[in-house]
Amino acid sequence: MSDPLFEFLCRMGDNTLVLGHRVSEWCGVAPVLEEDIALANTALDLIGQTTLWLNLAGEVEGKGRDADALAFRRDVWDFRNVLLVEQPNGDFGQTMMRQFLFDVWHKGYLTALQDSKHDQIAAVAEKSLKEVTYHLERTMDTVIGLGDGTEESHNRMQKALDKLYPYVGELFVRDDVDDAMIAAGIAPDPAALRADFDAVLDAVLREATLTKPESDFAHKGGKSGQRHSEHLGHMLAQMQWLQRTYPDATW
């Protein structure tokens, strides 16, 4: 295992990088103008958070890599984001469901991370939490509104939940990196955050008239980097193309 602190920071930064990129794919084609603005806003927040996490990761690593070097010059196996965030946008409902599931976890995790013994991490968590609190308010309202909307919107949201729920479990997996972070007082135990997550999820789904899938089966492999989905490679091909094609250029 490489330095667990570096691994941990890549996990935080890669989650926001990959999700921010996915959300930015919506640019200009949202269902209403207000959503165009809100989606761009979410993507902007996430890209901003990415810069903070990955610059910190680069500093910790001490090999002279900054956030851009990490974002644009690593290949799939070096990415540490959970599988949930690399899943394609699908329809607007799927994008919102993915964002909602992530936001509930993100808010809980960042809240705990504010107490980190690592001052810089606590500071990034505090700044991010303000933005993420707003993200969650919005996605919660949207999931409820579309779940409890028309028959079509309800069915689409149920389908999105069924499709994405198997990616929720990975958010709460505890592994060696987490053990090291917990021992150092840097980050919380992800498994311990599940109960609060479920409470919010259940309350929102009830109001949205949606049904949580019975199986708790969870796909894994993103956070550890051992096995990403096929989708991530295509995203990186697009995202990294300029940097890879013109390696000597500055932009």
Binding site: G28, L44, T51, A67, L242
Partner: peptide, 28 residues
């Protein structure tokens, strides 16, 4: 928004991507 949105996912740095996103958001 569309001709600039065409490059958001290929912006060469995080900063350029953020600036372009902010610009397209302003246009909306």
């Amino acid at each position: 928004q569309l001709p600039e949105g065409n490059w958001i996912t290929r912006a060469p740095t995080l900063e350029r991507k953020a600036i372009l996103l902010a610009k397209v958001q302003d246009e909306a």
